[in-house]
Design a protein around this nucleic acid. Structure first.
Length: 705
DNA sequence: CCAGGGGTCCTTTTT
DNA sequence: GGACCCCTGG
């Protein structure tokens, strides 16, 4: 077999990118240009041409969703030979490196991973300890500042010096800068004392290891010989460093991305990483994928017109051989309730007329709050929908409590988790007692958790001390029974019932802690807790299904590992799998990388898109507006067949009604591509009757099932 | 000292 | 729907 015979089905650009396996390569992949297909072929080519063992190939993505999808497609295309290829997110890769080599940085073998909520808790501990009145400050803002330093690799000492230097020069220093610099160091200490790392650390610490530790470096270079990075335009400074270290002297690095789809500057992503790739990796080949396979000509023209307004871009021009397609629609509504209603009606009508499925339609918005009205209206009109992303499963109070219990058991030093559940359900340990414990811990130079373990009747009241001892005993017993559950889970494949760790968790929530009992008046909350147990069960089964055939190393399922995955994969909750037939609601950010037949882009107004925060220029500068434009570009290019835009002249925000002006980007779309409509035009009385009949029929079908 | 009820404010985008 | 605060009653 010739080594290139499997490349048919690719266009010449894609083929060139696949075959370019030595040295650094930048693939500028326009929207809808089949870049995932190209990556899948590239992986297969590396294996088939015997350039690398499957396990020496590493593909890095940003989201678990993207990793899952690529894994699936690689397996479908290249079969079992490719199952050892490592496809991982940056953060999971970080966990992997830290588990193996983190001890060199003094990290415990089983560290906790803190999400934003936990980070805020840790920051609050940190600021209260240095006697900063936290009421006056928005800690989320302080945290963003700290995170910003971390993603740029700035240490607390350097942050302190920089801020002090600015103040010395008499520059107007933000009091937030001063506070953040002070809090930063203490925040890091709190994390270490809790045996925890935050999301930034998952990138930062592995890079530090790769820089400072020869052994880690050698291990990584030995392990992976061909590196691929998807969505490269979203990398930040630390991720660029990681890319450099992973590639090493071999520089077999292939990055794929589209600078026009860079939408994560707010979390440190730096477009210049992709714009200056040839500077960072001299001698790099640059290949552009400019053929679009996804959208109609009109959609592409509209998208191109919008993005053309941005100055600093890699020049490229997308073309397509797809049909012209219908014009884009633009609705102008009186308010957001009417907007939602029209979207729901339109989808119902079009689905009926075109005999399409609910899941062919997506509604995209700039901010999560916008989903509220849409959800209400969809429910009202019996349109099945699915909200992707935020206010997710893990943010529900009871689920967060459940997870905190799991963490309190798995990580005895995890102060944030323990403080969250020490009095849920209430067991007589109130605020005053907690403050007393914090005070005592400081006086005696102990950690909060250490203090809890040694509390005496004289330290707090007798009743309180008893309650604390009871709580500690509860955790101890839970730890012992977890050991047994993990032992069973390691030795026996899961049967039909709940696997051991999941069963243990169920027992913990139901009997040991009374958590389920405390929420039993709300059926939903009980179900959510059971779903959390279900997530553990799925984890255990998956772990077993990944067990290699013989001899090879395999990590049996553990609660600690399950928690790490849960923390990194917020989508873990889509138990009712992706294939359910429902309209998809999500933010423009979540939509990147996806495609739909029809896309509704709502809220195209000044203040929403572009978002008001990008106008006031906190630290984003002029770049913020360019990023808003890219968001719209991403939104438009998600559609295969049809795009419907809408805006409102009024919108309810909080309690009051505010006036809205059309988004500045709307007038940049050539008028001949757009049909302007008003809500009255969509449905004639006959159509509306037709629609009703349709719903009736659906209901009947549903009941028949 | 603790629990629970009833106000207030707020919400850019995410691993 | 949250997180947070203040108030009341045990």
């Amino acid at each position: 077999m010739s080594s290139t015979s499997h490349l048919h089905g690719l266009n010449p650009e894609q083929r060139e990118a696949v075959l370019q396996t030595d040295g650094p390569v930048l693939v500028l992949a326009g929207a809808g240009s089949g870049k995932t297909k190209m990556l899948v072929h590239r992986i297969a080519h590396l294996i088939r041409s015997k350039k690398a063992e499957p396990s020496q190939v590493l593909a890095v993505t940003f989201t678990n969703k993207a990793a899952d999808e690529m894994r699936e497609r690689v397996r479908a295309f290249a079969g079992d030979a490719a199952k050892d290829v490592v496809i991982s997110t940056f953060h999971s890769l970080g966990v992997r490196i830290l588990r193996e080599h983190g001890a060199r940085l003094g990290l415990p073998r089983r560290f906790a991973i803190y999400d934003t909520r936990d980070q805020l808790g840790a920051l609050k501990t940190a600021t209260s300890e240095i006697h900063i009145d936290d009421d006056r400050f928005d800690l989320a803002r302080v945290l963003r500042r700290i995170s910003d330093w971390k993603t740029r690799g700035v240490t607390p000492e350097r942050a302190d010096r920089e801020v002090a230097a600015e103040a010395m020069k008499g520059n107007r220093t933000d009091e937030y800068d001063l506070l953040s610099a002070q809090a930063y160091g203490r925040y890091e200490e709190v994390l270490r004392a809790c045996g925890a790392v935050d999301f930034d650390d998952l990138l930062l610490l592995p890079v530090r290891l790769l820089e400072e530790d020869e052994e880690t470096r050698r291990a990584v270079w030995k392990r992976w010989r061909y590196i691929m990075i998807d969505e490269y335009q979203d990398t930040n400074g630390v991720q660029l460093d990681m890319a450099r270290h992973l590639a090493g002297a071999r520089r077999n690095l292939c990055v794929v991305g589209d600078d026009d789809q860079s939408i994560y500057a707010f979390r440190g992503a730096d477009v210049s990483n992709i714009l200056d790739f040839e500077g960072h990796f001299p001698g790099a080949r640059v290949i552009a994928l400019e053929q679009n396979y996804r959208s109609t000509k009109r959609i592409l023209q509209a998208a191109n017109a919008v993005i053309a307004g941005n100055a600093h871009r890699h020049p490229k021009s997308l073309r397509t051989e797809n049909p012209e397609g219908p014009p884009l629609d633009l609705y102008e509504h009186e308010d957001d309730a009417l907007e939602a209603e029209t979207v729901a009606k339109e989808i119902g009508l079009r689905r009926y007329r075109n005999a399409t499925a609910w899941k062919d339609y997506a509604v995209l918005y700039r901010t999560n709050v916008q989903s509220r009205v849409l959800e209400e209206t969809m429910r009202e009109k019996n349109v099945p929908y699915r909200v992707v992303g935020a206010t997710g499963f893990f943010e529900r109070r009871e689920v967060a409590d459940g997870v905190a219990y799991l963490r309190a058991v798995a990580h005895p030093a995890d102060e944030i988790a323990i403080r969250r559940i020490i009095n849920t359900p209430t067991r007589g340990i109130g605020r005053t007692t907690i403050f007393r414990v914090i005070e005592l811990a400081r006086e005696r130079g102990r950690t909060f958790c250490g203090m809890l373990r040694r509390i005496s009747d004289e330290d707090v009241g007798t009743a309180q001390a008893k309650a604390i001892r009871g709580f500690e005993a509860l955790l101890d017993r839970a730890r012992k029974s977890l050991d047994e559950a993990e032992a069973r889970s390691a030795h026996f494949p899961p049967g039909t019932g709940l696997p051991p760790i999941a069963e243990w968790a169920m027992d913990l929530f139901r009997d040991r802690t009374g958590l389920i009992d405390s929420v039993k008046e709300d059926e939903h909350r009980v179900i959510n807790l059971k779903d959390l147990v279900g997530a553990l069960a799925r984890y255990e089964r998956r772990r077993w299904s990944e067990k290699p055939d013989a001899g090879e190393e395999w990590e049996p399922p553990t609660l600690h590992d399950a928690l790490a995955r849960l923390a990194l994969d917020s989508e873990e909750d889509d138990k009712d799998d992706d294939e359910q037939d429902a309209v998809v609601l999500m933010t423009l950010h979540s939509a990147k990388g996806l495609e739909f037949d029809e896309v509704f882009l709502v809220g195209l107004e000044e203040g929403i898109l572009p978002h008001s925060r990008s106008l006031v220029d906190e630290e984003g500068g002029a770049g913020a507006l360019a990023e808003e434009r890219r968001l719209l570009y991403v939104g438009i290019t998600r559609a295969r067949r049809r795009v419907t835009l809408s805006r409102c002249t009024q919108r309810r925000r909080g309690g009051e009604t505010v006036e809205c002006l059309p988004s500045r980007y709307l007038e940049e779309i050539p008028a001949e591509l757009v049909t302007v409509k008003t809500a009255e035009q969509i449905l004639t009385p006959e159509e509306s009757a037709e629609l009703k009949k349709n719903f009736f029929r659906d209901m009947k079908e549903l009941l028949a099932e």
